[in-house]
């Protein structure tokens, strides 16, 4: 691939105390690429993407985001983070602000955008996730699926170069999963660079350029969805796929 690399992880290792959470991960995310990371719980997939905006610190190796190397003494972490959107499993909307304000806060407070412009942008992205009519409600008044879509809109308002999704549908009722996945599929179609930790294999098959399977802090297998699902090479991958595709 010749496209510009947005995230480059080289031999990244991380420990939680004695526990070796990431063991020399190498991964490059190119502009416009959609990557799905899956794997059993505790395999380090969430930890990995949380390292990409330095919510977690890695101890060894190098992570370069948009040409900036992440490390403990960086002074421009805010600039990097505002270019990397993140959607969390538990939404993490700001409950004391209206939906609209949740979306306006980032552009106004971090990027210094005027209130009018922030509002315009916020309404545009709320429209895009198809909930403009909820703009003046508070997050608790919304369903889980709606909250997650607001969270996506909130991230989009920062106009990020890449979006990280940390199990965005795992805390949702089954009925609400599809509305969030549709929103994400729409984003992918529009060319957003995405790294998704998810177990939604249908989504992975339909959207991903590359599927990555992690286990015990390592990347075990990666490939195109067709290769990954049709012809997994490693036994660990086969066991995992047979487990989650059984139902």
């Amino acid at each position: 691939m010749s496209a510009q690399a947005i995230i480059e992880a080289k031999a990244v290792s991380k420990w939680y105390g004695q526990f070796h959470a990431l063991k020399g991960i190498n991964l490059t995310v190119h502009k416009g690429e959609r990557i799905v990371i899956c794997g059993p719980s505790g395999s380090g997939k969430s930890t990995l993407i949380r390292c990409f905006n330095r919510l977690e610190a890695h101890q060894e190796g190098e992570i370069v985001v948009n040409g900036v190397t992440l490390h403990g003494r960086m002074s421009n972490v805010a600039a990097v983070r505002s270019n990397v959107g993140m959607v969390f499993q538990h939404f993490n909307l700001f409950p004391h602000m209206t939906v609209l304000m949740n979306c306006m806060a980032g552009p106004m407070w971090v990027k210094g955008v005027s209130a009018a412009e922030a509002r315009h942008t916020a309404l545009k992205f709320l429209e895009r996730v198809r909930i403009p009519e909820q703009a003046n409600k508070f997050p608790v008044q919304l369903s889980g699926g709606q909250q997650q879509r607001v969270a996506i809109a909130r991230s989009l308002c920062m106009k990020p170069d890449v979006m990280l999704f940390d199990e965005p549908t795992s805390a949702l009722d089954p009925e609400m999963v599809s509305e969030v996945l549709e929103t994400m599929t729409g984003l992918a179609r529009d060319g957003m660079t995405m790294v998704c930790v998810t177990h939604e294999m249908g989504f992975a098959r339909a959207v991903a350029d590359r599927v990555i399977f992690m286990d015990a802090g390592q990347i075990v297998e990666e490939g195109t969805p067709d290769a990954f699902f049709g012809n997994p090479r490693h036994d660990r991958t086969k066991v995992f796929l047979s487990q989650i595709l059984k139902h």
Binding site: L55, V77, A79, S82, M86, F88, N92, G106, V110
Partner: peptide, 20 residues
């Protein structure tokens, strides 16, 4: 999660504290 959400959007410590 509130800290993480505001950090992920690039809010600094003072802003996170005061507004979130």
């Amino acid at each position: 999660g509130q800290w993480e959400a505001s950090r992920s959007m690039g809010f600094g410590f003072a802003l996170t504290m005061r507004r979130i």
